[in-house]
Simulated scan of single mutants.
Amino acid sequence: MFSYIQLQADTIANAASNVVVENVASNTEISVLGFILKGGFFLIPISILLFYTFYLIIERYLYINKASKIDTHLLKDVSVNLISGKLDMALAIAERSNTASGNILKEGVQVVGRPITEIESNMDRAADIEIGEMEKHLGQLGLIAGIAPTLGFIGTISGVIKIFYSISVTENISIGNISGGLYEKMISSGAGLIVGIIAYSGYHLLNGKIDHFALKIQKQILEFVNIIQKS
């Protein structure tokens, strides 16, 4: 009889402990959004910078991708009309392309008949303008790459200051109190670094596309000048 009562007591104790463990586990569970929101106030500007970074990258990519297209037949069509003496037709073909390379060729066609150095200089200036249009707002990506991690770091530092202030007031130096507050504030540092990496990567990838276009357009200018010299 005694052993039966002992068995029942052990069963009840085990069930109670399981309930406590389950309740603790359920209470410690947290969603990803809830975890992120523990980062504090500085996550607000970091989030704004994240959305603005994506906007800049997408907008600049679409613009650069469209403007930097070089039609391999464009220069050939323009040169054929130039050799035939049809300057108006060559100019119309260049304008119709609606690309950066077409605008640069148009500037060259407009000064055909003048010294070669003047033609080349005119086209180089047009190329600089088109590249400048492509680079517009890219500096902001570089700025975000530096600002976002700094904001995250400031958020962490402010959180650490609050933790130590709380310790000085309450004199509670428990590991749970320190680590709990610290991990929450380090979320802002992690978020700032992620935004900074995205902005930094976008900045250099887009600049790489612009550099590639600049190289191709210089080859096109050289080819155009050679055609003028031979005609």
Rank of each mutant, 00 (worst) to 15 (best):
A15P: 11
N27H: 08
A9V: 14
V21L: 14
L87S: 05
S47D: 03
G34F: 01
K69S: 13
S68T: 11
Q8K: 06
V20R: 15
L33Y: 06
E59P: 06
P45T: 03
I12Q: 12
L74A: 11
A13C: 06
V21C: 08
N65H: 06
F35P: 07
T72K: 08
K66I: 09
I83T: 12
S31D: 07
N14I: 08
K86M: 03
V21N: 14
G34S: 09
V24I: 09
Y61K: 01
F54T: 10
G85L: 01
N81I: 01
F54S: 05
I46R: 04
S84G: 07
L49F: 04
I44E: 02
I12N: 09
E59L: 02
K76C: 03
A13Q: 01
L62M: 13
R60V: 02
D71S: 11
I12H: 05
G34Q: 13
N14T: 12
N81P: 07
L75H: 09
T72D: 10
V80G: 00
L82E: 03
V32W: 06
A16G: 10
A15T: 15
N18L: 15
N14F: 03
V20E: 15
F51K: 12
V21R: 13
K86F: 01
S17F: 10
H73C: 13
V78G: 02
R60H: 04
I36K: 02
V19F: 01
A25Y: 07
S84W: 00
A67S: 15
I46F: 03
D71L: 07
Q8V: 08
I36G: 01
I30G: 03
L74N: 13
L43R: 02
F42C: 06
T11I: 11
I46A: 00
N14V: 07
Y63G: 08
F51Q: 12
G85E: 06
V80D: 05
A9G: 07
D71H: 06
S17W: 09
T28L: 12
L62W: 05
F54R: 08
I12T: 12
E22I: 02
K66M: 12
L7D: 15
P45N: 01
T53W: 00
L43K: 04
I46C: 03
V32S: 11
D71V: 05
Q8H: 04
G40T: 08
I70V: 12
D10F: 01
T72A: 05
F51C: 14
L50R: 01
A9F: 02
A16M: 12
I30R: 04
A16N: 14
Y55D: 13
P45G: 02
I30Y: 00
F41H: 08
L33V: 14
I44M: 08
A67Q: 15
N14P: 10
T72G: 03
L33D: 02
A16K: 11
L82K: 00
Y52G: 13
F35C: 11
F54N: 12
T11Q: 14
K76Q: 10
